[in-house]
Design a protein around this nucleic acid. Structure first.
Lengths: 130, 130
DNA sequence: GATTTAATAGTAATAGTTACTGATAGCAAT
DNA sequence: ATTGCTATCAGTAACTATTACTATTAAATC
């Protein structure tokens, strides 16, 4: 596999982002540095980086995915009012995968936990937004 | 909200399915009974049933969603070789949501856990399929 | 049964993503 | 350094899953 400035930049942008950007968001951030990079290149490399285990993909029920620099098994919280995705710090995520392995004989390689609800900032806004 | 035979049938099909069907799969099963039902009707009612909390949506990183009769917080395992989605029986799922609530102040309403890996049946098939 | 209007069938449109094609550039061997 | 090979690129077309639109149908109420 060849090193390319495009791939390095895409990886750097994801690593420098703490807000779990969508592919289009990565694209616009990358274009700020390299204006004529192609959207297809962004998608191709995001997918490649995911398959290499260098970044993580978080699929959303609302359609589309978000990308994350963290590869360790961990959990996310998504507010159904403001849409923000944040990390949920939980100590026992790896323990779950172990429990599954023992109980089922299946071999989990990655664990993705998504909580959906109302975030601290949006509690009380229910009637306005929904 | 009115009762419609279409919605009742869509709900029944999801409840009678134990394989976590995609929307298109629900559509084809529903059409076996009601041949001229519209795909839009299936999507609209799946979404409605999800928002009513009667069924559950499982978004996949590979694109699209699967639907599930079970509403309780629970976990799934998806084999990256055969693509099958099965339930992962774990006792401690609700405890995770409680831990999040206490730790962050966010208010989780649903918890979705997705394990990805190689299922028991596909262990050893690695070289053929990937 | 007549009225009201939510829900439908059928189709067009959209969003997110992937595939295609000719051009470019990273790497290896000269 | 130059050449050759080909992975990767930019740009664009195509595709898939989903949603929106519109005229029509049928549940619920009167």
């Amino acid at each position: 596999m060849r090193n390319t400035v495009q791939r390095d930049l895409i990886y750097k942008v994801v690593c420098d982002s703490s807000d779990h950007p969508a592919a289009e968001t990565v694209y616009s951030r990358v274009r700020a540095v390299m204006p004529n990079i192609s959207l297809g290149t962004v998608y191709r490399n995001l997918k490649l980086l995911v398959s290499l285990g260098k970044i993580r993909e978080i699929p959303l029920a609302s359609g589309g995915s978000r990308f994350d620099k963290t590869v360790m098994a961990h959990a996310h919280f998504r507010c159904r009012l403001c849409g923000e995705v944040t990390d949920a710090e939980l100590g026992s995520v790896d323990a779950l995968a172990d429990a599954l392995r023992r109980a089922s004989g299946n071999e989990p390689e990655s664990t993705e936990i998504m909580f959906t609800g109302v975030c601290r900032k949006c509690v009380g806004k229910e009637n306005k937004a929904v």
